[in-house]
Design a protein around this nucleic acid. Structure first.
Length: 855
RNA sequence: GGGCGCGUAGCUCAGUUGGCUAGAGCGCUGCCCUUACAAGGCAGAUGUCGGGGGUUCGAGUCCCUCCGCGCCCACCA
């Protein structure tokens, strides 16, 4: 009977509200209105800036990404409604070995750095996977990457926009783009200028197939079969038995080592042993890392068989006697030359010539034959299984080779620990991971990768008259020339014709580790040096969201760079997210084949529903992929539409002075408490608790308050007006509380009676709600809901309709609760269809419901 | 081996400085077309709070210990 309803301001409440189409509609609107555009006139104090993790485009996004990126968006939306101007850029990490590999596979190409640039090269239209990869030059390959990678990025953008990330898409960057390269090269030059970056020959974990050093962050261990060989060294007191799994590295042996407390070897320390087959005298040394329980308790140190060898080599100041080349084969050695002295030069040479040029595996087989023939292996070869380091996408074990690398010095540990303690961690226990990592730091940070699609070192080396590059006298580029590629740019004071000529120059052939660039993400997005105005308004940033497994890499390295460059933390808060596990508690990942396509999830449940599921994952906690939760989220969004339709069906009203009914006032007081809790939770970055409190209140609001107030709201007079104004007041606050979680549904409802975007409206305050509710006690609503539940139970047990009439209800309770109930008796009676509601004060609380006879 | 986290209903999870009979949702059972919502509503059943010990008037919560799971680190001759 619309004619009986009061004249409504409401214009656009749909007959049957639905979630269909909301995402497309509001995405477009937000885009058109620039709803999330950063206003760079705001001052630093007014800005909330976020150092978004640039997802790598080497794979595809999975639900875990949606999960954690949603968490960031929840904070961003909250801060925006709190009045902050949110600086929320997005980056794409298209820099690094994995991206390079993906582009190679996709385009059927491989890089040959010796080839010249071919201006006519075009991306192959079809890739025959069986055909040989096409060899192209490094500049051509980089061009190809720049062409292919945006295709990946478009797909990512599409997904993020659908999820509803309130990113300012005008502020996007790529880690290989000119801005990032310039920042990264500038950061490098500044460190090199202060001797905080230096070049050194050093043992490095090396992938013999990709022919590059590999970042510690990209390592994984795999179990492989191996075998112990008990080699017979010639010791001071006769044969000395040494167990090894790497007999092929015997020619690279520089010492043997046992534990200092091991009585078997104590008398031998400081004396010499001689290697079998090669006759090389090596010292017998003591070191804590030697394990008396392992093998014969004495190990051979080779340059280099594993990372322990590197530690021993470094700490015991041993020489290098390297046999492994970068292609994984043994190199040629002239025995008798300096560093290769033997007691039996001819014998050593003869044995070694059998190994030179062979792969590690081939050399191992051959040397075992040689040793066995010579009777220099004691007993049987004992097969074992041991874990071996691999590059995560590699197929052969990593080797350790020495090569020229750029390093960044780590700052002193105590300075890093002070930075770590000044940072606010969410959750706080994640701080410990940082501290553990800092306390365990060894060596410096190798930032060199022998790859192509990366940030080049802005460096050349002079070539002497004999044609030898002098790696210890690098020619640094001028900052004003950045970004540059030294393989195409010419250093000042040189002619291009002098490239690779005696007396000329040579480009640094390598690129930087991807972390060397991403550790400057805050500097890149804030426009360090490039845009001082923006930098001043955004840096140091407010928040770094990221995953816990890269605290030791990304977070730590970012702190290092900011420490050096700005003598500050890069951000005030680190928000650490957990990841998604499948029901078997395995980490969800594409390669494990247990990752669902997030696009399919979005289509099935909708963005608000996915966000709801994500928001239930507490900061730092791992969560299970649970489509059931997404269904709950979807239902919540639909419920919100319907409840809003009801609340607004009486017209959008305001005027707190007309809220006079105790039930309405009690509801607003309760809501004010929820606002306080949600606000406090959000301020602690605990969006999950904010949602939980809001949601719990909302269901109670629908189930109890709406039912209790319905009859009155449909009526006339000041009591009806009180209900209607209270409904409008509560709805506005509730929508705002939900807005960060359900941006689409809340925006839709907002548009029914408000102008502008809810996401640019102000966060509700409890003070306003308390004032609207006249600071009333919340008890009347609680008691009314309790009595209503009892009435419903009686009807349910009688298998009656909820509209069934109740002849009489007698409530016995404390004086306080009876007083509260009396204040709202009319609403309770109406909601329960109760003819007579009697109350009495008594010790034993009870509710006696007498249903009307149905005859 | 070290560090951190987790273990609460069949499932996914809350439970804040110790405090009434331990909660929510999903699922399950029953009922209800009720003028916001049947893609809904109402009601109901469901627990050795991982095990053991301790502190306390009182422990899911604090302490010790053990078990299981996960992540990171170390080791990997």
């Amino acid at each position: 009977m619309p004619s009986q309803l009061p004249c409504a301001l409401v214009t656009t409440i749909p007959e049957k509200p639905s979630l269909e189409g909301l995402e497309a509609k509001w995405r477009q609107q937000w885009d058109a209105d620039g709803t999330y555009r950063f206003d760079r006139t705001k001052t630093r104090a007014e800005v909330f800036s976020i150092d978004t993790p640039p997802p790598t485009v080497s794979g595809s996004l999975h639900p875990g990404h949606v999960f954690s990126y949603t968490h960031t968006d929840l904070i961003a939306r909250y801060q925006r409604m709190r009045g902050k101007e949110v600086f929320y850029p997005m980056g794409w990490d298209d820099n690094g070995l994995n991206v390079e590999r993906r582009v190679q596979l996709l385009t059927g190409t491989i890089v040959d750095p010796s080839l010249p640039y071919d201006p006519d090269f075009r991306r192959p239209e079809k890739v025959d996977k069986k055909a040989r990869a096409v060899a192209i030059s490094r500049p051509n390959f980089i061009e190809l990457c720049e062409e292919v990678v945006p295709e990946f990025e478009t797909a990512y953008h599409e997904l993020w926009a659908t999820v509803g990330l309130s990113v300012d898409w005008d502020h996007t960057y790529t880690t290989i783009g000119p801005k990032a390269v310039r920042t990264s090269q500038r950061g490098f030059l500044r460190l090199a200028g202060r001797d905080l970056a230096y070049r050194s020959e050093s043992p490095t974990l090396w992938d013999v197939d990709m022919r590059t050093s590999v970042a510690q962050a990209e390592l994984e261990d795999r179990e492989l079969p191996g075998a112990y060989h008990k080699l017979v060294f010639d010791g001071p007191d006769g044969p000395l038995l040494v167990d090894t799994t790497r007999p092929e590295l015997l020619p690279a042996c520089v010492a043997v080592v046992a534990h200092p407390d091991d009585p078997r070897y104590q008398p031998l320390f400081g004396q010499l042993a001689t290697t079998p087959l090669f006759g090389v005298p090596v010292p017998i040394l003591a070191h804590e890392l030697a394990d008396p329980e392992k093998g014969t308790g004495i190990a051979m140190i080779c340059t280099f068989g594993d990372t322990t060898d590197v530690t021993w080599w470094r700490e015991l100041s041993l020489p290098v006697r390297a046999v492994l080349q970068r292609d994984g084969r043994l190199r040629g050695v002239a025995w008798g030359e300096p560093g290769w002295e033997s007691n039996d030069t001819a014998g050593a040479q003869a044995a070694y010539d059998e190994l030179a040029g062979k792969t590690v595996k081939q050399a191992q087989s051959r040397i075992v034959e040689l040793l066995t023939e010579a009777g220099l292996i004691e007993g049987d070869i004992r097969p074992i299984t041991h874990s071996v380091k691999f590059w995560e996408n590699g197929s052969r074990p990593l080797e350790i080779v020495t090569s020229q690398q750029w390093f960044i010095r780590y700052p002193p540990k105590d300075e890093m620990l002070i930075r770590g303690s000044a940072l606010s961690w969410h959750p706080d226990f994640m701080r410990v991971r940082f501290e553990n990592w800092v306390n365990g730091l060894m060596g410096d940070w190798n930032i060199t990768r022998q790859r192509f699609f990366g940030v080049p070192f802005p460096v050349w080396y002079p070539i002497d008259a004999d044609g030898q590059p002098d790696f210890l006298s690098p020619i640094l580029a001028d900052e004003s020339d950045l970004p540059i590629d030294p393989t195409t740019a010419t250093p000042r004071d040189f002619e291009e014709s002098q490239r690779n000529q005696p007396g000329g120059f040579a480009a640094d052939p390598d690129v930087m580790d991807t972390w060397a660039t991403s550790s400057l993400s805050a500097q890149i997005v804030c426009g360090w040096e490039d845009d001082p105005d923006l930098f001043e308004r955004t840096f140091p940033m407010d928040m770094r969201p990221q995953a816990h497994e890269i605290i030791r890499t990304w977070l730590f390295s970012s702190v290092v760079r900011s420490h050096y460059e700005h003598d500050s933390l890069p951000w005030a808060n680190a928000a650490i997210s957990g990841f998604i596990v499948d029901p078997d508690r395995k980490k969800l990942s594409k390669s494990a084949g247990n990752a669902d396509d997030p696009t399919a999830l979005l289509e099935r449940h909708g963005a608000d529903a996915i966000r709801y599921w994500s928001a239930n994952g507490r900061p730092g906690m791992d969560m299970t992929l649970d489509e059931g939760q997404m269904k709950v989220g979807r239902r919540l969004a639909i419920k919100l539409l319907n409840a809003s339709k009801f609340a607004l069906s009486f017209g959008a009203r305001s005027g707190a002075s007309s809220i006079t009914e105790p039930l309405d006032q009690a509801m607003l007081t309760e809501l004010a408490d929820v606002v306080d809790e949600a606000t406090a939770a959000f301020d602690r970055f605990d969006y999950a608790r904010a949602l939980e409190r809001t949601e719990a209140h909302f269901w109670g609001f629908c189930d109890d308050y709406l039912e209790l107030v319905k009859t009155r709201a449909y009526g006339d007079g000041p009591q009806a007006e009180s209900a209607r104004v209270a409904l409008g007041t509560a709805l506005e606050a509730l929508l705002k509380l939900f807005a960060p979680f359900l941006p689409y549904a809340t925006e839709e409802v907002w548009s029914w009676w408000q102008t502008g975007s809810i996401h640019r409206s102000s966060w509700p305050t409890s003070a306003a709600l308390r004032s609207a509710g006249s600071d009333a006690d919340a008890l009347p609503l609680r008691v009314a809901a309790d009595i209503l539940t009892e009435i419903r139970r009686a009807k349910s047990e009688a298998k009656g309709s909820m509209r069934a009439e109740v002849e009489r209800v007698v409530v016995t309770d404390t004086a306080e609760r009876i007083a509260a109930l009396n204040a709202v008796a009319g609403d309770v009676a109406a909601a329960g269809v109760v003819a007579a509601l009697d109350t009495q004060i008594g010790d034993a609380a009870s509710v006696i419901v007498t249903l009307a006879s149905t005859d």
